[in-house]
Design a protein around this nucleic acid. Sequence first.
RNA 1: GGGACUGUGGGGUAGCCUGGUAGCCUUUCAGGUUUGGGACCUGACGACCCCGGUUCAAAUCCGGGCAGUCCCA
Length: 483
Amino acid sequence: MPEEFQQGVTAKKCENFSEWYNQVIQKAEIVDLRLGIKGFIVIRPWGAKIIEKIYDLYEEELQKRGHQPTIMPSVIPESNLKKESDHIKGFTPEVFWLETPKGSERLALRPTSETLYTPMFALWVRSHRDLPMKLYQRGAVFRLDTKATRPLIRGREFYWIEAHDAFATKEEAEAQVQEDIEMTEKVLHQQLGIPFLPMKRPEWDKFAGAEYTIGSDVLMPDGKLIQQPSTHLMGQKFSRAFNAKFKNKDGKEEFLWTTAYGPAMSRILVSIISTHGDDKGLILPTSVAPIEIVIIPIYTKKNKKEILEYCKKIKKKLEKDHRVHLDEREEHTPGRKFNEWELKGVPLRVEVGQKEMEEQTLTIFIRDMKKREKIQLKDSKKLKLLKREFDERLKKKAEEKLKKSIVECKTKEEIKKAIRNGKICKVNWCSTAKEGVPCAEYIEKNINADVRGTLGNKKETPSSNCVICGKTAKEVVYIGRSY
RNA sequence: GGGACUGUGGGGUAGCCUGGUAGCCUUUCAGGUUUGGGACCUGACGACCCCGGUUCAAAUCCGGGCAGUCCCA
């Protein structure tokens, strides 16, 4: 079919990622960009169902680890927002302010909710017996980003979960930060097949108000990194600002130690799309596919009724173990349905026609197979295995890509070359504290890349001096371009 | 933050320079024939981003706004 008539994706993922991305999110009916409000987006049913699934995966992990759901106001009184000085310095330029009645306090649309949770911790936590207190909410936050917005990647409203936890000691709080990374590993990597680098951000790049931040960097097809869930040790900064104390075992008052964790659903969707998708469209891991198996009936006028009846039987059988959809639309031919469901990323397709009915077999197409390649199945129990293997293949492929894109660099020239080739550089580094700023600025100005940080869950020892200034290296950092 | 470009039925586009009849492909709708990798025939609906200016006349020229894309910091 000539390209200009195609309803499917016409851009090639590896040649023109931006164009490919814009086409996929619209043609696969993830989003609609036509409402026209800068930084805000309409998410269509197919996209919303995927996001719901990601929410479910996360909430399950959070609850397993003792978090409880809450629902907080979407607005924050100005006085709350301004209690912690670093926090407000970081967020003020990005706040949407609401018009409020004369004489009442100004309200901000929440850009994040530390300043809602901490005052509630102050009320809810009386003694060490109330700790730890681990809460979360799903919801939207608003940030008036002045940079160019991009659908799902960078918006002024985004959908996430924010978990806010309070502890009696710093050790417990830091253990929570590590547990947060484990949750990212479980959901993002294990269930969605998206590998990441947990990066302890340099001092100059941490969350406004945090002691430290560990962000998860995920590779995009163009070689740039995108930040996925981040976790923050707030220490006692917010609890001091809001006077949130508890009585310890000795009856003495102490400030709470708090943490925050924030996985953004819309961004995770970006990584699912861009990590696994191909030139035909989306490829969804089974854990978030609204439909795992689509059944396409193939009939003629004579056997139509019979075939449809048989398909319904198969659907009923498969429904016990899978999310199944039978595409009964009469107005479309099988070929068109094949293309549509492939564009939407459905993992498995079952084709049922005269042949399958007579031979009692299933003709299976798996989304990552070559066109027209098909599998014949006698036993539908094997579908579970096919799904597992499919997810595993997606994960392996993404892991290899990330592994291949990390290169160790010993000189500035090597860094420059690697960045130009869309790689991530692993280098010896003087410091991610304030004294490392000049070296980081060198990277920014001359190589147009960022110091993303040090591994956040494992200590790496430098093998020689700082690659930029030549002084003693204290750390090993990763450098890359970013979204 | 700086720059370039763009906005025409639901989607993709022609027309814009040189002002005057909005053309094409696709989708959608109705009817019919079809259905193993994007079916066919017949018919129908549907558009110049918004505000202002110039002009007898603006999709076209000018100004502003809104929105989007790309490039650079």
